[in-house]
Design a protein around this nucleic acid. Structure first.
Length: 613
RNA sequence: GGUCUCGUAGCUCAGCUGGAUAGAGCAUCUGCCUUCUAAGCAGAGGGUCUCAGGUUCGAAUCCUGACGGGAUCACCA
């Protein structure tokens, strides 16, 4: 445990000794001292003073006086209810030695109990490539995986792939119709984009058909008979689109026919389905690799979409579900502040949630985890509330370990992304863009001209990814975010590359001078050094908070603060040309610690840093 | 309309288990490269923390209400 904990202990001890009151440090406000006051740490005594019936100043002075007995407290001052204490140089030195000699893994593992997790994230459809929304999802999911791993928890990851349904049938239909046997290989198009293109082709064809139909007398009859009062034909036909697809459309009927054939396992359809999905998976694989994210397993809806009927039966047997006269099965969650929710259609077929119930149960049977985290956009908040409450009603043993990591939707400065309007930001395009921006800046600077082409492109990729990933992860997960493509490729200021730059500066120094470990220090410690150490000491708390909140943004912001503080230190203080050999070693050690913590934090975010840039 | 959620500088965001004069970045303006990578540093301007009440020594932070944005309320997934 770092030595700040000792100071906190001393404060608790002082209160016990002076006032015979037993306090927990978490009940007291003890924080870093604000820069405009003299001191390193501050204890706020207002609330406490009230409890003991003495003025805040008196309490501050008494505790301050008591603390002076400690060799790590240099001095104190009291301003109203604020007791500011200054630490001795010995305190900082002890901490440096501790951080130098103790691995971050060990520090984070302290008092951590064994737990195991399954994180479900990404969850794509196989009819189109990954987009910006998926990027936020996978970065959050993968980052949470890294953070939990950093706490030495057992974590595995999975994704549920929606590989069946009408959407992929649309792609299949269009491919049969227009492709003439073309493949990703024959056209050189990435598999997921290739299949996505046929989905778009279907949609365009359908739009065309629908538009033509709207001028027929059949359409006119339907409009006059079923329009709402004063509804324009435009509005009506927008609303009617889905019905048209299901009831009237010719190509809609053909696509639905393919779906039926798929369910009936018609070999020819099954074959095409497998073939096209395989193309998509190849494409996804490339994107995953670029983002450097991984999955320990995959669940396919084609294999799980029939699950859940059994669990519904169990619920009926336990009388926590009920059957309506028409045969549909429901759960009543009104006592939980939710509504009644259908679990099985009157014809006995599944709905969305049926499958999720079944999947949850099956997964627990197979993996037996304590915690299951679903990384899914917050538009599904209600669905997950219902799902979790239903599983609790069923008294499933894992029901209390379920967590919906909900993140806000990603919007463009122009508003929501709409595939219909072609405003969806494609994941691969975005990755290419940040990479070429990184390349542009790097070439201007010319620091890495001597590297081989292969090494160079690796650095461009790392910097581009640092920019993109940090940009996405610095925002609190639960908040919706405005994604400005222009800002995402920024490399200055509060950005990933800024943090990478701090790290690279240290690596550059390391290349000039090997860092030896130290066991003492006898010179003055400057303010910039203390500020760095204060931040280093805060890291375990930052990680714990990220785990508690299921939110990496705190770690992202921490990395920025640490990098910022380092840049200041680097500017103000000479390291290799320090005043004495001893100071140089001390500062080198400090650099080493900072680079380790920066690297650890960035690793938690899934950001891989280069040694040069 | 019901439920959930958000509202902090021109823009994008921190800060939210109540604590001192509310912080960054971008953008605008001004300085600093013969010294370890200037993707950097230092400085200036920019705020009724949406509004109104309440809780108290103290509120951006907690509570209530209003206003404004978003999500959701299918025998879709």
């Amino acid at each position: 445990m770092e030595y700040l904990a000792d100071i906190k202990g001393k404060i608790v001890e002082s209160i016990l000794s002076i006032y015979s009151k037993n306090y927990n440090i978490t009940d007291l406000v003890f924080d870093r001292c604000k820069k405009e006051f003299v001191g390193d740490y501050t204890l706020v005594t207002f609330a406490f003073s009230k409890n003991v019936g003495e003025s805040p100043e008196l309490v501050g002075n008494k505790i301050g006086e008591f603390l002076l007995n400690n060799k790590w407290i240099h001095s104190y001052n009291v301003i109203k209810g604020f007791l500011n204490i200054q630490m001795t140089d010995e305190f900082w030195i002890k901490n440096v030695l501790y951080f130098q000699n103790t691995s971050i893994t060990k520090i984070l593992h302290y008092q951590s109990e064994p737990k195991n997790f399954l994180i479900e994230y990404c969850s794509p459809n196989t009819n189109k490539p990954l987009h910006l929304g998926h990027i936020r999802n996978v970065l959050l999911g993968w980052s949470m995986r890294n953070i939990l791993k950093a706490k030495s928890y057992d974590v595995s990851t999975t994704q549920v792939i929606n590989d069946r349904g009408i959407a992929i049938c649309k792609s299949m239909w269009a491919w049969k119709q227009f492709a003439n046997g073309a493949t990703p290989q024959s056209t050189g198009i990435k598999g997921d984009h290739f299949v996505g293109d046929y989905y778009v082709m279907f949609e365009n064809k359908f739009k065309e058909e629908y538009a033509q139909w709207q001028s027929t007398s059949q359409a006119n009859d339907i409009y006059t008979n079923s329009k709402k009062e004063s509804e324009s034909s435009d509005d009506f036909f927008k609303r009617y689109k889905n019905d048209y697809f299901n009831k009237i459309s010719e190509i809609g009927a053909q696509a639905r026919e393919m779906l039926l054939q798929w369910e009936a396992q018609v070999p020819e359809v099954l074959e095409l389905w497998k073939r096209m999905n395989a193309w998509v998976y190849e494409g996804f694989e490339v994107t995953h690799k670029k983002l450097n994210i991984h999955f320990n397993s995959c669940y396919y809806e084609s294999q799980t979409y029939l699950l859940g009927k059994e669990i519904v039966q169990q619920g009926l047997d336990k009388q926590v579900f009920y059957r309506e006269a028409d045969g549909s099965v429901w759960v009543d969650l009104e006592s939980k502040g939710l509504d009644k929710k259908i679990l099985l259609r009157s014809d006995g077929t599944s709905v969305y949630i049926t499958q999720d119930l079944g999947t949850a149960q099956q997964r627990h049977k197979e993996l037996n985890k304590d915690h299951y985290i679903y990384v899914v956009a917050d538009e599904q908040d209600y669905h997950f509330k219902v799902l979790f409450e239903t599983l609790k009603l069923l008294e499933e043993p894992y029901a209390n370990g379920l967590y919906h990591l909900a993140y806000g939707m990603v919007e463009l400065p122009t508003g929501r992304m709409k595939s219909r309007e072609g405003t969806v930001v494609d994941a691969d395009d975005l990755i290419d863009e940040v990479e070429s921006e990184a390349k542009l800046v790097a070439e201007e600077r010319g620091e890495i001209v001597h590297l081989s082409d292969e090494e160079k492109s690796k650095v461009y990729h790392q910097i581009g990814m640092a920019a993109l990933k940090y940009f996405m992860l610095k925002v609190q997960a639960k908040k919706r975010m405005i994604f400005d493509p222009k800002e995402s490729v920024d490399m200055q200021g509060n950005t990933g590359p800024y943090i990478v730059n701090a790290y690279v500066r240290i690596k550059s120094i390391e290349r000039r001078q090997a860092i030896e470990s130290i066991d003492q220090y006898n010179e003055i410690i400057v303010e910039q050094e203390k500020e760095l150490l204060k931040l280093i000491m805060e890291y375990p708390g930052i990680v714990d908070e990220a785990v508690k909140q299921y939110d990496p943004s705190g770690i992202a912001n921490y990395c920025y603060s640490l990098a910022k503080e380092f840049h200041r230190f680097y500017h103000d203080c000479r390291i290799l040309n320090a005043e004495t050999e001893e100071q140089k070693k001390w500062r080198l050690t400090l650099c080493k610690i900072v680079s380790d913590y920066l690297n650890h934090g960035m690793q938690c975010l899934g950001i891989d840093m280069p040694d040069r840039m």
